[in-house]
Structure formats: C-alpha cells, structure tokens
C-alpha cells in the first residue's frame, strides 16, 4: 500500500479521543488490584488478631507506609512510562526511596540492639511465608496493571514491566501486612523488600513479552 493511501484511510471518519484514558485505566487497575489483594488476605489468612494493641497497630502502619509507598511511587512512574517519550524525563530513582528509608530504619534498630538478638529480629516467626505469599498474591494486581497498560503505549518494556511488578508487590505486601505478626524493622527491611523486589524482577521479565504492541 502507498503511504498516501494509508493516510487517506486513517483520516476518514476521524473520532475524537480522550488523552486521559490511559491514566484512568491505570488508576482503575491500581484500585481494583488493591481491593483484590486485601480481599484475598482477609479470606485466607485473616486479619492479625492483636490489632487493638498500640504496638501492633504502630507496626502495621509502618509496614503500610513502606509497602504502599513502594506501590504509590511505582504508580506515579507508570503514568509516565505508559506514554511514549516521557520515560526518560522522569527520575526512576524515586522508586528506590521507600527501600532506602526502611533499610536505614532497620540499620538504626540493629545498631541499638545487642548483636545476640539480631538473628531473631531478622528471621522473625515466618519469613518463608512472607517470601512466598507476597509474590503469589501479586499476580492479580500485576495482571490488572498489564491489562491497563494496553490502553497506553509503553516503549521501554523491561522498565515498565518492572514498575508494574513493584506496584503489584507493594500492593500485595500492604495486604499481607494486615495478617503478618512479625513486628521488627529488620524483618520488614529484609523480607518485605526482597519479596517486592522479586515481584519487580519477574514483572520486568514478563513485561518484555506481555507488553508488546
């Protein structure tokens, strides 16, 4: 086909479009993914029983600030990565901030704790559970984000996929925090971070295939 013919075809019956559609789709997917993750945790593991205690509540909030912070920064970056030509202008390092924050807090906590207790602080009660459940529960939010990205046009598939994975991991970790009874900063810094980063890595690798257009 000649290029002039193609242009003729494309300009016939031109419909107005809404440039906000991609962002809206991503926002909806984010919300739906969060609901799905919370519902899944409530139905399977159940909320932690000691939520009335201030200590437990405080740690829950801290975990939420970290995990939801990861999800929120990944979401803000995704809004740009979903559109061609905007990825390079955004600073990707923002995504690392929540991780740096939690690792610093954990280091401080270890500094003031005698070395003999470190192992217990880091290992907690259920680190393998944390490491398995967060990535598994991230599957649904990730799938929703990948679907929503079809309304966008990502050109850096690895990074876009990795951000979708981080977002899903953050959402999933926030939901898991509702059930998780391990209250120590080094535990969160070690296992929550690892689980979320694993989601990002898998998300990036899958993204290269799933996000093509």
């Amino acid at each position: 086909m000649k290029t002039a013919d193609l242009i003729n075809r494309l300009t016939v019956d031109l419909k107005p479009v809404d440039y906000r559609r991609a962002s809206r789709a991503l926002g909806l997917a984010f919300a739906a993914g969060s609901l799905a993750a919370v519902a899944a945790i409530c139905l399977t593991l159940g909320l932690r029983p000691d939520l009335r205690e201030p200590h437990a509540l405080g740690f829950l909030l801290l975990k939420l600030v970290f995990a939801a912070g990861v999800a929120a920064t990944a979401f803000l970056l995704l809004l740009r990565f979903a559109r061609p030509g905007q990825a390079r202008r955004s600073s990707n390092l923002v995504a690392a901030l929540p991780f740096v924050g939690i690792v610093l807090l954990a280091a401080l906590d270890l500094y003031v704790t005698p070395g003999a207790q470190w192992a217990a602080l880091i290992a907690g009660h259920a680190w393998p559970k944390c490491l398995v459940i967060i990535p598994v529960m991230a599957a649904v939010p990730y799938a929703l984000m990948v679907l929503a990205l079809r309304w966008g046009a990502p050109t850096d598939l690895w990074r876009t996929g990795a951000l979708a994975g981080l977002l899903a991991g953050g959402v999933s970790a926030s939901a898991y925090a509702l059930a998780c009874g391990d209250d120590s900063l080094p535990f969160v810094a070690c296992w929550y971070s690892s689980a979320i980063l694993m989601c990002g890595l898998i998300g990036g690798m899958l993204g290269q295939r799933l996000l093509r257009w």
Partner: peptide, 14 residues
C-alpha cells in the same frame, strides 16, 4: 495510540 499523547507534554519526543 493517538490518545497516549498528553497535550501538556512536547510532541516530538512522543
């Protein structure tokens, strides 16, 4: 994908 262009951003990079 013409709806993925955000009018508040420059066009040529897109």
């Amino acid at each position: 994908r013409r709806d993925t262009y955000d009018p508040s951003e420059p066009f040529t990079p897109w």
